[in-house]
Simulated scan of single mutants.
Amino acid sequence: MSKTILYVRVSTSEQTSDHQLEQALKAGFQVDEVVTDHGTSGVTTKLEEREGGKRLFDMLREDDTLVVRWVDRLGRNYQDVTDTIREFIKRGVTIKTVINGMVFDGASKDPTQKAVRDALIGFMAAMAEAQAEASKEAQRAGIEHHKAAFPEKFKGRKPAFDRGSFEEVKAMLQAGQGHSAIAKATGVNRNTVIRIAQDPMKAEAALIKWGM
């Protein structure tokens, strides 16, 4: 039986997985299952190397439908996104976007229509990568400005955890342990555990700033 699977990638500053599911449902999609990657870079990590991405490659079969908010959820690397979409199309999977209702599949046998489809895939993947590069450049410029203007404040508050306890907290979160149990086992404050769970990349960045 064919399935409709929503893939959600949640980065530090973007929408939550619940929000992306809500958008898909409001757009009229009947979602059978949601596959999520939290705090994973779409630039440096290929879809097939992410935990949720691996599940997609294992799950998707002919006649299944893959729904994403936009192609940038699959990734922000041109080659990875185009390779991924074409691989799923070869499998007989239909890919649909919530934004603008784009549809990519292998239904058409007309070479001209296939060329238009492939060109559109390439264009959208290129836009995703270009937007990522622009965001990185703006972020770098902002960091340099703050370094120059507020050198003594740039590091921010020292983390209330070290590298070892951070890795312990992450491992226990991935194992599905509750916040209170993790706090008790690691000695890390429960509120800090919650902040790490909500934004692990921010916690990682804080450790790096302090050379930890």
Rank of each mutant, 00 (worst) to 15 (best):
1 M>C: 13
3 K>W: 05
3 K>G: 10
3 K>H: 07
4 T>R: 03
7 Y>I: 09
12 T>R: 13
13 S>G: 14
14 E>A: 11
16 T>C: 10
17 S>R: 12
17 S>D: 13
18 D>P: 05
18 D>I: 03
19 H>L: 13
20 Q>L: 10
21 L>P: 04
22 E>R: 11
22 E>G: 08
24 A>R: 01
27 A>E: 03
27 A>M: 00
32 D>M: 02
33 E>Q: 12
35 V>T: 00
36 T>C: 10
40 T>C: 12
54 K>S: 09
54 K>T: 08
55 R>D: 10
55 R>K: 14
56 L>P: 02
58 D>T: 05
58 D>F: 00
58 D>C: 03
58 D>W: 00
61 R>I: 01
62 E>T: 14
63 D>G: 11
65 T>F: 00
67 V>G: 08
67 V>T: 10
69 R>Q: 15
71 V>S: 01
73 R>I: 08
77 N>A: 14
78 Y>I: 07
78 Y>A: 02
79 Q>C: 15
83 D>M: 04
87 E>H: 10
87 E>R: 08
89 I>A: 00
90 K>I: 00
90 K>E: 05
94 T>Y: 09
95 I>N: 02
96 K>T: 04
99 I>R: 15
99 I>D: 14
100 N>V: 11
103 V>L: 08
106 G>T: 06
108 S>K: 07
109 K>W: 06
109 K>M: 11
111 P>S: 04
116 V>G: 09
121 I>L: 11
122 G>W: 15
126 A>W: 12
127 M>F: 13
128 A>T: 06
128 A>H: 07
128 A>G: 03
131 Q>F: 10
133 E>I: 08
133 E>K: 13
135 S>L: 04
136 K>P: 12
136 K>V: 08
137 E>G: 00
138 A>E: 12
138 A>M: 12
140 R>Q: 02
144 E>N: 06
146 H>V: 03
146 H>E: 08
146 H>M: 12
148 A>R: 01
148 A>W: 00
153 K>Q: 13
155 K>S: 07
156 G>P: 11
157 R>T: 09
157 R>M: 11
157 R>K: 14
159 P>Y: 00
165 S>D: 14
169 V>M: 03
172 M>K: 06
175 A>L: 12
176 G>E: 01
180 S>W: 09
181 A>Q: 14
183 A>G: 05
185 A>K: 09
186 T>N: 00
186 T>E: 00
188 V>L: 02
190 R>Y: 07
192 T>Y: 03
193 V>F: 02
196 I>G: 04
197 A>G: 07
198 Q>Y: 03
201 M>S: 13
201 M>N: 13
205 A>F: 12
206 A>P: 01
207 L>W: 11
209 K>L: 15
